[in-house]
Design a protein around this nucleic acid. Structure first.
Lengths: 351, 351
DNA sequence: CGGCGTTGGGCAACCGGTTTCCACGCCGTA
DNA sequence: TACGGCGTGGAAACCGGTTGCCCAACGCCG
C-alpha cells in the first residue's frame, strides 16, 4: 500500500531507472532501440533490467501507440474440424504478421457475438474476423452492417469468412468459398455414376451455407433434366448427430434412394454410422458423399468422397487481406474455389 | 495531424465530454456506474456517447487498473481434436469468468513458446495455460520453472495442462490426467479378450504422455506375468500419418499380433485405414484400440474402443483453479481419472 | 434567515509507458 | 579563448482513461 515497488506485480520502468541511476526516458530509449545512448549507460540499464526481470507493460505501450497489434477471431465452436482448420490458418498468419490473436466462441448465440464484438472494439483490435455461416436475413445484414461501420470508425476492420456478404458499400472484407458450385460438381459426379434418387441431408433451411449447397444439389439435377423428389430433401443441422438422426429417419420411412449426399462431412459421418448400424454396406448398398473434406474424411470406411474446401487457406487469406488493405483500397470480396475429391464411398449403379 | 478528433480512430472520452459540455471525469462516472450523477447530466452524456458511438479504450482502462482480465492459452496445434476440446473448455470457462482469451500455436517450436510466454508476461495476463505433452527432461524442468517464477513475480500464473509437473516448490498449477492408468486398464481389457501378442503404436520415446501410456501397456502385461515382445513396440508420433505408416511397417515386417493398441485415436485412425487397405477385417482379423476418445472415435468403422479423457473438463478446470486460487493457497496438482469405453473394435480371440 | 449536510461536478494526480524539447558538457576549430 | 556543434540524458507533455479531493449550490431544519 506504500509507494509500490516489490508488489506481486512486475517492476515498472521507474524501478529500473532508479536502480540504474538514470531517468525513465533513458531506460525507454535503450530498450526502444534507435536513440543514441552511451555504452556505459546502456550496460547499466540492461543489467538493471536483467536483475529485475523487467518487461515493459504491453498495455501501457499500446496506449502510447506502440503496442502489439491484435486481432480477434469469433466463431461458433472451435471444436468443429473445419472451424479448427480456419482458426489454425488465422492464428498462423496472425503471428506471422506479428499480431496477437484473441478468440471467442459464441455457441451460436447472437447476443454473445454482439457483446464480444463490442469488447473487441474497445480493445482496438486491428480486425475482427467473423467466421461460420448463418441465416442471411435482412435483420442479419442490417445488424452486421452497423457493426462494420462501428468497427471501421474505430479504425478496425470487419472480415466475414464464409458468411453472407452485405451488399455494396459496407466497409467489410468478405472471403467466401463456393458452396453451390462444389455441391453442383459433387452431385453431378454422383448422378454420372447412374444414381437417380439421391437423398440430401441438409442443414438449417435458412442457413446460407446450407442453402448454397442445397441449390447446387438441385441445379445439378435440373442440368440433367431431373426433378428431385422433395421427399429426399431432409433438413437438420451440420452436426454428426443430425446426420445420424436424419439417416435413421430416412431408413425408417423406407425412402427409396441409392445414394446419400450430406451437407457436411460431419453429417456424413453420422449417416455412415447409421447405415452401418442398419447393416447396410457402403458403397455396395448405398453410396455416400460429404462436404468439407475434413482431415478425418479419408479415415472413414469407406474413405469418403467429398468436396474439398481450403479452410486453412481461407483463414490465412482472411487475415492477410484484412491487414494488408491499404488506406482506401476497395473493399475486397474473394470467392475461393472448391473441388471434389473422389475416394471410395461412391459406386456406380450396376443395374 | 491537428489536435485530433475525427481521425480514423474512435473518439476519446474528452470528445464526449466536450460534446456533452461536462468534464471527462463526469463522463467516466456516468459510464462507470456507482458515482452519483444528476439525471439531466447523465442524459446529456449518454446522448453524446451514442452520437459519437463511443467506447472506452480497454487498454487505457487496463493501465488504470480496471481492465478486462485476459488469459493466454498456448498449445501445439489447435487442429488436433483433443487440443480443440481443451481449447473449447478453456475458452468457455474463461468467458464465463469474464476473461478474454488469447491463443497461440507453437507448432512444436520451443523458441516460439518461450517468445510467446514472454509476450504474455508483457500483456500482464492473469494466467498462461500451457497444454500438451512434451519431453520431460531436466532442461525442460529448469526452463519451465524459470518461466513459472518469472510469471509469478509479474502477478501471473503458469498452468501446466497435461504436461509433466516440475516437482515441489514451483509456483505452478498442474492439471494432469492418468495416462498410465488408462493404458493399463485398456490393455488389461484387451488381454482379457485372450490376445497375447499386442502391437503397440507408441509416440515419441521421450514424450511424457507417450511414456505414460507405454508404461501402462507394459504394466498390464507384467500384471499377467507376460513379457511383451520388444518387436511389438513401435514408435512414431501422435498423428494419423504416423499410425498409418507404422501399421504398414508392421504389416510389411510380417510381425505377428492379433490386436493393436494405438497411443492415440488419431494414430488408431491411420492404423485402421492401413489395415483396411491391406484387406484385413477389424476386429475379425485384428482387434484395435485407441486412446483419447475423440468425438470421431465412434464414427470409425468399427466404432473404436478407446480410453476416455475428459479434455474439455481439463480445460475448464485449468482456468478455474488458476483463477480461483486465493492469494497464497498451496499450488495445486490435480490428476483426473480416465476410463475405457468399449465399442466394437475389439473381439475375443476364438483360437 | 443562517448553519449544515448532501448532492453534483471539476481539477489534478495517477496508471506505465513514449517522445519532444531543451540543457549541459565536451570537443574541435577559428 | 571564445564559439558552434555533437553526443547524452533529463524534464515534461502526452496517450486515454480513473479516482481522490475539494468546492459550489441546494434544500432542510432549527
Amino acid at each position: 500500500m506504500t509507494r509500490k515497488s516489490q508488489d506481486a506485480n512486475g517492476s515498472t520502468i521507474r524501478d529500473v531507472a532508479a536502480r540504474a541511476g538514470v531517468s525513465a526516458s533513458t531506460v525507454s530509449r535503450v530498450l526502444g532501440g534507435d536513440y543514441p545512448v552511451s555504452t556505459a549507460t546502456r550496460t547499466r540499464v540492461l543489467r538493471a533490467v536483467r536483475e529485475l526481470d523487467y518487461v515493459a507493460d504491453a498495455r501501457a505501450k499500446a496506449v502510447a501507440g506502440v503496442g502489439t497489434p491484435t486481432l480477434a477471431f469469433v466463431l461458433e465452436d472451435i471444436t468443429g474440424p473445419s472451424f479448427a482448420l480456419m482458426a489454425h490458418g488465422v492464428e498462423r498468419e496472425a503471428t506471422r504478421l506479428g499480431h496477437l490473436c484473441l478468440v471467442c466462441s459464441t455457441e451460436g448465440d447472437v447476443q454473445r457475438e454482439l457483446d464480444f464484438i463490442e469488447t473487441m472494439r474497445a480493445q482496438r483490435t486491428a480486425a475482427v474476423i467473423l467466421v461460420g455461416g448463418t441465416a442471411d436475413t435482412p435483420e442479419y445484414r442490417e445488424r452486421t452492417r452497423r457493426i462494420a461501420d462501428s468497427l471501421a470508425s474505430a479504425g478496425s476492420r470487419l472480415v466475414l469468412c464464409g458468411r453472407p456478404p452485405l451488399g455494396p458499400g459496407a466497409p467489410v472484407t468478405v472471403i467466401e468459398y463456393d458452396n453451390e458450385g462444389g455441391a453442383y460438381a459433387l452431385v453431378a459426379h454422383v448422378l454420372a455414376q447412374g444414381h437417380q434418387r439421391i437423398l440430401f441431408l441438409g442443414g438449417k433451411p435458412h442457413h446460407a451455407t446450407a442453402q448454397g449447397r442445397e441449390r447446387g444439389y438441385l441445379a445439378a439435377h435440373r442440368a440433367r433434366g431431373l426433378d428431385p423428389d422433395p421427399e429426399l430433401l431432409l433438413h437438420g443441422d451440420f452436426t454428426r448427430d443430425s446426420g445420424h438422426r436424419l439417416m435413421r429417419l430416412a431408413l425408417s420411412r423406407k425412402l427409396e434412394f441409392t445414394a446419400v449426399v450430406a451437407a457436411t462431412d460431419m453429417v456424413a459421418a453420422g449417416a455412415l454410422t447409421a447405415l452401418h448400424e442398419a447393416g447396410l454396406d457402403v458403397p455396395g448398398d448405398v453410396s455416400l458423399a460429404g462436404y468439407d473434406d475434413i482431415p478425418f474424411a479419408r479415415d472413414l470406411y469407406p474413405a469418403l468422397t467429398t468436396v474439398h474446401v481450403p479452410y486453412e487457406e481461407l483463414g490465412r487469406l482472411a487475415v492477410r487481406t484484412a491487414l494488408g488493405r491499404t488506406a482506401e483500397s476497395p473493399d475486397e470480396h474473394l470467392l475461393l474455389g472448391t473441388h471434389v475429391v473422389v475416394r471410395d464411398s461412391i459406386a456406380a449403379v450396376t443395374s
